[in-house]
């Protein structure tokens, strides 16, 4: 028997260059929650984009599922320091949802069933950088991971990838969200370790 155990409860490092500074790899999928898990029946689910000119674009579940789907494989990085490589999702690119949206707004405030919010520049949602997903790892997205549908914005810390997403409000001024008003960084780039306000 080897005297060197292979990282029993240890933190797995990676030299592929895909893991941002200060992060360690996990194989499981930790669940972090800031409140009770919302249960949203599909016949009452909707997703809406509200523009700064007070125009609303709305999709029922049926309409959302009829949109062209993509199957992104991405690495995700949680601000609590775990990273997970090659996660596989299925959903709709924000580019598709924004196709008919006319806006000059620079900021987006994402809001969720259950009241969660998170903010980011609109450009971080576009050009193949973000999706509304409804399947993970070949299965329907479980409620504890944000099902029926969540946002994923893999290039930012995962608190920006709002679970139970309900809509996006476009704004001319930045409006900090749930964690961004409680000490976490306004932008949250894992490669620059923007964890807390002031980082």
């Amino acid at each position: 028997m080897s005297i060197i155990s292979r990282g029993f409860r240890g933190k797995r490092r990676d030299d592929s260059g895909r893991v941002p500074p200060g992060q360690y790899l996990v194989d499981d999928f930790p669940v972090l929650s800031a409140g009770p898990t919302p249960r949203v029946p599909l016949d009452r689910w909707e997703f809406a984009i509200d523009t700064e000119a007070e125009q609303t674009h709305r999709w029922s579940w049926e309409e959302f599922m009829a949109l062209p789907a993509e199957t992104p494989t991405v690495d995700i990085h949680c601000v609590t320091k775990w990273s997970k490589l090659d996660t596989t999702w299925e959903g709709v690119s924000l580019d598709v949802l924004f196709e008919d949206v006319e806006t000059a707004a620079e900021y987006a405030l994402v809001h969720s069933y259950g009241g969660y919010t998170t903010n980011l520049p609109l450009e971080d949602l576009l050009d193949g950088k973000a999706w509304i997903v409804h399947r993970f790892d070949g299965e329907e997205l479980a409620p504890q991971h944000g099902g029926p549908a969540r946002l994923i914005v893999p290039h930012l810390y995962f608190w920006k990838s709002a679970k139970w997403v309900r809509g996006i409000r476009l704004l001319n001024e930045d409006w900090p969200g749930f964690w961004e008003t409680a000490g976490y960084h306004n932008y949250g780039d894992p490669w620059r370790e923007q964890r807390y306000e002031g980082d």
């Binding site: 972090l32 800031a34 409140g35 601000v79 609590t80 964690w179 409680a182 976490y184």
Partner: peptide, 18 residues
């Protein structure tokens, strides 16, 4: 109380608001 990570979130036992 939900958490502890990314932070502690304490909600009202009556209405569940933060």
């Amino acid at each position: 109380v939900y958490g502890p990570d990314p932070g502690l979130v304490a909600r009202c036992p009556g209405c569940e608001e933060v």
